[in-house]
């Protein structure tokens, strides 16, 4: 097996171009487990842990209402440093694995693995994040979170591309993430849900995890709640819709899921818990964004 260890981003892109089969690794919390179990034996390993740029985050150059978070930023840093910038993402990061895993695992790794159970995806979908990817040949490309997930553990990266960063609007309110597992910490999501509500631009967006072949959105639920907020003139003044509207929102979220029965939960329970989580998190997000 080839082991490539570029020292900066340009070298990393060149290495990926030269070895398109190379599997990028940074924290190793996913890739190394797969290798140890011999589930995947990549032709080459592209170690990005020396690429400093990936570990940085700050205001986005092109839009200062957004933050640009390097793909190599760990969950621990997300939850410590981004709690008032992308609160939903910080909530999600907090539920990932154990402290040790959070110290090593990165957002970029979560995107690269593209597991439907990855904890970052629902929030990034709800927050309308954009993923910045790059290749030596074609330069930077920005992929919306909506277009990124193609199937179980498949994403829309080309073979010579690497994930550089995520770009997401900064906000300190209106985002909520909730996750179901059968223990109170260190658990893979049986299912998860994120909502991002922005009273200023009057938008509701959602993300569903672990209840379909890919992370999903619930477009009907989003439209319904947006419409009800508008019709009821609820956007301003921190007003909340009636309980039955929020209940209907939950039902529509559950309807958008495509869950299966597996070792972590039944499809019926996944749908039910999404209904409850959607209702509760939307309530919290609306209250919070008063």
């Amino acid at each position: 097996m080839e082991f490539l260890q570029p020292s900066d981003w340009q070298d990393a892109l060149a290495a990926k171009a030269a070895f398109p089969d190379a599997v990028p690794v940074r924290g190793g919390t996913d890739v190394m487990v797969e290798m140890n179990f011999d589930r995947g034996r990549p032709a080459a390993l592209l170690d990005l842990s020396h690429v400093k740029e990936l570990g940085e985050w700050g205001r986005d150059d092109t839009d200062d209402t957004c933050v640009r978070i390097g793909a190599g930023v760990t969950y621990t840093r997300v939850l410590r440093e981004l709690g008032t910038t992308v609160p939903g993402l910080a909530q999600a990061a907090r539920t990932v694995g154990s402290p040790q895993i959070r110290n090593r695992g990165t957002i970029g790794g979560n995107l690269g693995a593209a597991s439907p159970a990855g904890d970052c995806h629902p929030v990034l979908l709800a927050a309308d994040a954009v993923y910045e990817v790059e290749s030596a040949a074609r330069g930077v490309r920005r992929i919306g979170a909506d277009e990124f997930y193609l199937g179980p553990k498949r994403n829309s990266l080309d073979a010579d591309e690497l994930i550089r960063a995520i770009v997401v609007r900064a906000t300190d309110t209106g985002q909520q993430f909730a996750k179901i597992g059968t223990r109170n910490a260190m658990v893979i999501a049986a299912c998860s849900f994120a909502v991002a509500i922005n009273r200023e631009v009057r938008s509701v967006r959602t993300g569903i995890g672990s209840a379909g072949p890919t992370p999903l959105r619930a477009p009907e639920a989003e439209t319904y709640l947006t419409d009800m907020m508008t019709q009821g003139e609820l956007w301003e003044g921190g007003r909340l819709p009636d309980a039955d509207v929020l209940k209907r929102f939950g039902d529509l979220v559950a309807g958008a899921a495509r869950p299966i029965d597996d070792v972590r939960a039944t499809a019926a329970y996944r749908r039910h818990s999404l209904r409850v989580m959607a209702r509760r998190t939307a309530t919290w997000a609306l209250r919070q964004s008063c």
Binding site: R94, A178, K179, I180, G181, N184, V276, M277, R280
Partner: peptide, 16 residues
């Protein structure tokens, strides 16, 4: 929140 059902996974703020 760590003493709530669901732990830090933010599934309830006391509801249910």
């Amino acid at each position: 929140e760590r003493m709530r059902p669901g732990g830090v996974a933010n599934t309830t703020h006391g509801e249910g």
